[in-house]
Nucleic acid binder design. Structure first.
Lengths: 204, 204
DNA sequence: GATGGCATGTAATACGTTACATGATTAC
DNA sequence: GTAATCATGTAACGTATTACATGCCATC
């Protein structure tokens, strides 16, 4: 019945690994797949209820250490639903790059203002890349387990893409700096601030 | 008043270049920015109405060649709103890679099935890259105009990122093929089909 | 005693996609 | 004549984000 709702499959997928609570699903999403797909509590709890109603998962209340929690498990029909979905090739990427939106209309603001936006993007991307690299180092030695290998493949995707982000940012910064130096009079105060920003973001 | 609605800024941005109709806005989006941000008619027309109500754009009905149309122009306050937004650095990328979602849970289906998904992704990405390369070739010679230069920068982003996609796909295919050949018995029918798919998608 | 993590949830709102509906003109 | 392009819009639905609300337990 669902046609577009990926939250369903994220939950089914995580439960296919092992039973867990909604809270733990959220944590798993954050620590593993959030760099290419985010899910919030506001989606998880209602979806779990729905999945239970549809018989794709079952729920078992627990009282561990006086703390009540609901542990969900995937059912056979849930596993089938998941596998059917996994076998359909994805249709398209859904990317939304706000940085590109701003840059596309960059002519409406100054070159230094655009440089600042790119510098912020570069900084963010660099931090993400570092996280991904750390993940890779942890995963490499344990790829004998198939699930870890697939996890590693997604991390590799991130690494290659974020490297491309950095490469692009450097290229764009160079292009625009040339433009600014060729057109602007002696470096203004605004330009000096930008340069400082670029330095710090580049050397972290 | 808006906090998240980028459609507003896409429309204001396009109108900052020149006045146009809702239909033409849609066409511009499709031909230039759709590879990193898509907008449908269902968003454009209502948003135009809203923007008009808020005084950020004005509308002038025309009857060109007996065909009625509504030509929208950006106002001064619209341009201010746009520029304010352009000067705020983007917070994060919003990417959703369904291919990675499927691969992350790849352990639930066979290795060849995962290979097919990656091959489909590769094929798609390769086609997009070709389009982007063609765009670049058209844009390179006309970057004297600032708007074209910014446009080119977004296209370069696409090129670098889609190249990274291809690189990743090849790497992932190699990894999984090794796995399949090391574990599977003599090539089954299923595996043969996959190999054919990979060939055609790789040589296009 | 305060902060942070574990744990579950609802409600409101915003946003986006799809389908539907209509009609003129232009090019094949 | 038929398909494609120009042109505008609405309605329904689905999906996602944000804020709010609650409470226990463990650690500092």
């Amino acid at each position: 019945m669902p046609q577009d709702n990926r939250t369903i499959y994220i939950i089914l997928g995580l439960l296919s690994h092992e039973p867990m609570t909604g809270y733990e699903i959220k944590r798993r999403v954050t620590t593993t797949i959030s760099f290419f797909w985010e899910v919030g509590f506001g989606q998880i709890y209602p979806t779990l209820k729905q999945l239970q109603k549809d018989g794709l998962v079952t729920m078992k209340p627990e009282t561990r250490e006086n703390r009540p929690r609901k542990v969900y498990s995937i059912t056979e029909s849930g596993r089938n639903e998941l596998q059917n979905w996994l076998r359909i090739p994805a249709l398209r990427e859904s990317e939304r790059h706000e940085i590109l939106l701003k840059l596309f209309f960059g002519g409406q603001i100054s070159v230094p203002a655009n440089l600042q936006n790119i510098a912020a993007f570069r900084k963010r991307s660099s931090a993400t890349l570092e996280t991904l690299t750390a993940f890779e180092e942890n995963l490499r030695p344990i790829t004998a387990e198939l699930d870890h290998l697939y996890y590693l493949l997604t991390v590799r995707f991130g690494e290659l893409v974020y490297k491309a982000y950095l490469e692009w940012a450097d290229e764009a910064i160079t292009t625009l700096q040339k433009l600014a130096s060729g057109e602007d009079p002696p470096p203004s105060a605004e330009v000096r601030v930008d340069s400082a920003d670029l330095e710090t973001s580049r050397n972290e």
